[in-house]
Amino acid sequence: MDNFLQNTNTLKNWMLATPAIDSLSLCELTLPGTHNAGCDWKASWPFFGPPAHWVACQHESFYSQLCHGSRALDIRLLQDDSAKGLDKFGMHHNGSRNSRTLRNLVTDVEQFLKESPNEFIILDFHQLQGEGFDFTNFNNLVKQYLGHRIIPTKNLSLSLHQLKQISAAQRIIVAAPWHSALDRTVFHEQIRHKWSGSGITNAADLKQHIINVLKYPPGTGAPWSLSATSYSALGGPVDIHDELNSWFDPNNSDWASKCNIINVDFIEESNIVSYCRTVNLMKARDRVPR
């Protein structure tokens, strides 16, 4: 593993500590991401429901994931008509709710960016579900609480350097499924997830899926996410850090360099952040000046 990233402080600020990558855009970078970021072991789960080991994809909170280097949070929301405000939108895994809500996300992201103001985050609102989902309310809440942090969609292709010149506060790309109530100057189109298509995926199947995707990877015109996750019918999300470390090590393959977002479970367990930093330095070195 890159010794540069052994220190937790460096993980927390790995983009700032790697200034060479400022010549790249968020679509050109390789970003470590957390799959089902709102479903973690530290959340409270209902007594009557699937056991946590079937639905928890991360160890700790959004804030902890960001501090460990994640820069793309995969968010799935269900509307709770019994709640109000930010708590009206709760996190879920295949319909199984937990105690995390949009309030936790907003609070954790704001705390992180106050402490690390030159890191960039993609909030991938991948699912907005629930009968009569209130897109207008969701739109207004995101703009109210995160608006000062959001990078306008028109600036998506700008380099990190250009984004920093424009604003000292705008550090978030938000993306969501299309809906007429969502402000498209704020919300980018839904991020494409390249996943295996099967709810049950072992490591061998996942490896073949990744090989197939990276034969013809999507371009750098828009963010896209590679689902590098494994799920067992008996145990739920599987910790495959040994496989991830082998597959994505830049010394072993060019896989990481071909990706935009690498969406993983239990981000603390693997070296994926270190590998992303390494290939981003390679991309910046190889980039033709604009």
Rank of each mutant, 00 (worst) to 15 (best):
Q165S: 12
A203T: 14
L206N: 09
S70M: 04
I173M: 07
E60G: 12
P46A: 02
C67H: 12
S157N: 15
D80A: 11
V273F: 11
S274R: 11
R192A: 12
G236T: 13
I166Q: 12
L146H: 03
P177Q: 07
G85L: 05
N280F: 10
V106E: 02
C27I: 03
H148E: 14
A256E: 06
V288A: 13
I122V: 08
A168V: 15
I151Q: 07
I172G: 02
H179P: 04
P152C: 09
C39D: 09
V279M: 11
S99I: 03
N263E: 09
C27Y: 02
I272T: 14
F187V: 07
D249V: 03
L182T: 00
I122S: 05
L86Q: 05
Q58L: 03
W224A: 01
L123Q: 07
N98H: 09
L244A: 06
A284C: 07
L29V: 00
P32L: 01
T220C: 08
E119M: 03
Q208D: 06
F266T: 13
T8L: 15
T101R: 10
H68E: 15
A169Q: 13
D265Q: 04
V174I: 01
P217R: 01
V279Q: 11
S82M: 06
A181G: 06
V109F: 05
A175V: 00
E243L: 15
T8E: 14
D108S: 04
I191Q: 00
N13E: 11
L160Q: 08
Y231H: 12
K114G: 00
N251F: 11
P218F: 00
Q127N: 13
W255P: 08
S96T: 14
I75Y: 00
T34M: 06
G90D: 09
G85I: 02
H188T: 05
N140I: 15
K194R: 12
K194T: 01
F125M: 07
F89V: 12
E131G: 13
W41E: 15
H179Y: 04
L16K: 14
S196T: 08
S64P: 02
E243V: 11
G236R: 02
H161C: 11
H126Y: 10
V288M: 13
Y231V: 08
L5E: 09
S198K: 12
T107I: 10
C67P: 02
Q129H: 11
R149K: 13
L29N: 01
L66G: 02
R97M: 12
D87S: 13
L11S: 06
R100M: 11
E119I: 08
D265P: 02
L86E: 10
T107K: 12
F266R: 06
H92D: 08
Q162G: 04
L123R: 01
F62A: 03
V142P: 08
P250L: 04
P32Q: 02
I261P: 03
S225F: 05
L123S: 05
A56P: 02
T153Q: 08
R76Q: 04
F47I: 15
S70Q: 06
L31V: 06
F248R: 05
S167V: 01
N139T: 10
K12V: 00
F138P: 13
P237S: 08
H126W: 05
S44Y: 06
Y216F: 14
C276R: 08
